[in-house]
């Protein structure tokens, strides 16, 4: 066994995680990008994306997960998502209104339609996904800190 397997859960859990985690991530991305056409959207997709990283953290331990997405990177993506969302909202002022849907809406039920909604979904997904993962990582690290002191 390699050193990677010293921490985390049993081999069965790790194998299944390795097989499924990519699918979970892809499903999250699908929910985000298809959010303006079918039920879903930035928040739901972002949560699923965050869960795929949480899944890795639960199965393999915190080091492996934090190597994939470090806390500072998560924090950066979170702030970036928020700023991106705000910029989209402010760009609406080109048409005179805050949050105005200033891109052409296209044909309903096409992938490229609904103007700024897909962009907003992506921004929300960055914010929620990174934010949720950062919360989880912060709570986990806090727990380890407490245990080390004891």
């Amino acid at each position: 066994m390699s050193r990677e397997h010293d921490k985390g859960m049993s081999l069965i859990v790790k194998t299944i995680t390795r097989l499924t985690v990519g699918l979970i991530l892809l499903y999250g991305i699908y929910i985000v990008l298809h959010g303006h056409v079918s039920p879903g959207g930035g928040f739901a997709g972002g949560v699923i994306i965050a869960l795929s990283f949480v899944h890795i953290m639960l199965a393999y331990g915190k080091e492996v997960a934090l190597k994939k997405l470090s806390r500072s990177a998560a924090s950066f993506f979170e702030s970036f998502g928020a700023v991106f969302f705000l910029v989209i909202a402010l760009l609406g002022f080109t048409g005179g209104y805050f949050f105005l849907n200033f891109i052409s809406k296209g044909k309903p039920f096409n992938l490229f339609s609904a103007g700024i909604i897909p962009l907003c979904n992506i921004a929300i997904c960055l914010k929620v996904g990174a934010g949720l993962f950062a919360i989880f990582a912060a709570l986990v690290l806090l727990k380890f800190e407490t245990e080390e002191k004891e």
Partner: peptide, 17 residues
């Protein structure tokens, strides 16, 4: 609610510490 709960749990863990 998610934000509030996460914050409450964070405070609770700090209180335990």
């Amino acid at each position: 609610g998610l934000a509030t709960t996460a914050l409450l749990i964070g405070i609770a863990m700090r209180i335990y510490e």
